[in-house]
Nucleic acid binder design. Structure first.
Length: 491
DNA sequence: CGTGCCGGGAG
DNA sequence: CTCCCGGCACG
């Protein structure tokens, strides 16, 4: 069957590009993948190209996100818009209720205080009016006692205000607004405090996390085929059973412990990475000085370095195991890292310096509303346990990125897998979490398989590329970006 | 014009 | 499903 395909393809090759055809025929028959190692690539130039691509993608996605936001009439804006009305209303109602309770029980107190309540007379009137509307029936009966009652109430209110902060803004007195301010301050302070003091991954509602992680699995990367070939999936369990997996078969937490000491050279580590990723899209809101980092995409290795060279070296030595040839690059590393950018002076900076998890603390409340918008929500749940403590804020990102190159990785590092073997992953991936934007996808620019390997090495392309479908590498990137953008929507 | 990839067809 | 390609849009 392969023969058939080969024949077909080679004939096609000759049809399409006469120049390349001979080569292909010469190479293929014996055993194409046997010496699998990308023969030669554009080397360093490739990396640069990649960056450009990234930039494009970022911009595109951002625009799209905004579009969608408007289109869906998403919840957050709406809330912001109408929020005041209902909110205030409910507050008032609450006040009134309290008032009523009060004058029921504090009659006598008031009597003694009556003299002092005079200055507050007008305030009383305000309150009264409101109450009139809502409790008309009660009033009818008590017409006669009304005045007295009101007095009572006012006093009650005064006292009560000390305990329960009333936020009734309709009343002019400065006293109130100041209290209100205090309230705000307190709230803000509390939020800040919780943010800054929060130790590591305090686990807020598990849900958000689940949905995020979930996005991963359905997003497709659990290759149904965990063939004996040592094909590696991201599925945690199968990982462990798989000896030939390039990365250590450890759960995320244990892995972290394991990894940290062994790779001390970089200043940034997983936790911060999360933040970085998290912040990445922020530039949309405030354009600031940006910093470009390079993140290792190897499974369970979120290593981030500030230079492409550095990350390449890291990948070569740590993951590809090419210690001796650490100075030589055939460009393969390019597939295992990605570029991330972050603005250096945003608030996030401060946060990230405090603890790696801060964002996650802020996010929980917002997740529920978010679900509708977030594209990858549809994707399932997988890494939940494996990555719990790590990268809570950016789980999707991390793991999505991994997929990106998975299809390229497997044949390389496991064994010259049968040609049929290596074409598994794409299928699942190609059902991406519904692309939010309408028409055609913004053209993928940059390093596609075709460009990388050239027509001659067509069988090194990712499957999608071979089928003339959207290249996986790019696709995943898009998803990744979307995910990040979606996360940001919360803020 | 080269290229990415959507839509759809064949097996 | 996998495999492939026509043809269009983009740069």
């Amino acid at each position: 069957m392969q023969a058939r395909r080969l024949a077909k393809r080679s004939s096609m090759g000759s049809r399409r590009l006469s120049a390349a055809a001979p080569q292909v025929d010469a190479v293929r028959p014996p055993k194409p993948e046997s010496a699998w190692r990308p023969p030669r690539r554009e080397g360093s130039a490739v990396a640069l190209e990649e960056e450009d691509e990234d930039e494009d993608v970022v911009v595109e996605v951002e625009e799209e996100e905004e579009e969608e936001e408007g289109g869906l009439g998403s919840a957050p804006p709406a809330l912001a818009g109408h929020g005041k009305g209902p909110l205030r209303g409910s507050l008032k109602a609450a006040n009134i209720k309290r008032e009523m309770t009060f004058h029921a029980c504090q009659q006598e107190d008031v009597k003694s205080d009556i003299s002092r309540k005079l200055p507050d007379q007008q305030f009383l009137l305000f309150t009264t009016k409101e109450e009139d509307l809502k409790t008309a029936e009660t009033k009818k009966l008590n017409r006669a006692h009304e005045y007295e009652k009101e007095n009572t109430r006012s006093v009650c209110l005064l006292e009560q205000k000390r305990k329960v902060v009333s936020s009734n803004i309709d009343v002019p007195p400065a006293r109130k607004s100041s209290e209100e301010l205090d309230m705000d301050k307190v709230t803000a302070a509390m939020v800040l405090t919780s943010l800054s003091t929060s130790p590591l991954v305090r686990s807020p509602p598990v849900r958000p996390n689940e949905s995020l992680n979930g996005s991963w699995k359905e997003g497709g990367f659990v290759p149904s085929s965990t063939s004996s070939s040592g094909y590696w999936s991201w599925n945690a369990p199968s990982d462990q059973s798989n000896p030939s997996t390039p990365s250590p078969p450890l759960s995320a937490d244990s892995f972290k412990a394991f990894r940290t000491p062994s790779q001390p050279d970089d200043g940034i580590d997983e936790g911060e990475t999360s933040n970085l990723l998290f912040d990445e899209p922020i530039p949309r809101k405030r354009k600031n000085s940006m910093k470009v980092m390079f993140k290792c995409l190897w499974k369970n290795c979120g290593k981030v370095l500030s230079t492409a060279a550095g990350i390449q070296k890291h990948i070569r030595t740590i993951h590809l195991g090419r210690v001796g040839e650490s100075d030589y690059s055939d460009g393969e590393e390019d597939f295992y890292y990605t570029e991330i950018r972050l603005n250096t002076d945003s608030v996030a900076d401060g946060l990230s310096s405090l603890s790696p998890v801060s964002p996650s603390l802020a996010s929980p409340p917002s997740f529920p509303t978010q679900d509708a918008i977030r594209p990858e929500t549809s994707c399932a749940k997988t890494e939940t346990k494996a990555m719990t403590p790590l990268s809570r804020s950016a789980p999707t990102n991390l793991y999505l990125v991994h997929t990106d190159h998975a299809y390229q990785v497997s044949p390389t590092h496991n064994r010259p897998a049968g040609s049929g073997e290596q074409k598994q992953s794409h299928t699942v991936l190609s059902s991406p979490p519904r692309v939010a934007f309408g028409l055609r996808k913004p053209r993928g620019e940059g390093k596609k398989c075709r460009k990388v390997y050239g027509m001659e090495n067509r069988d090194m392309w990712c499957t999608a590329c071979r089928w003339k479908k959207a290249c996986q590498r790019r696709k995943v990137k898009l998803i990744l970006q979307e995910g990040q953008a979606a996360l940001l929507e919360d803020f």
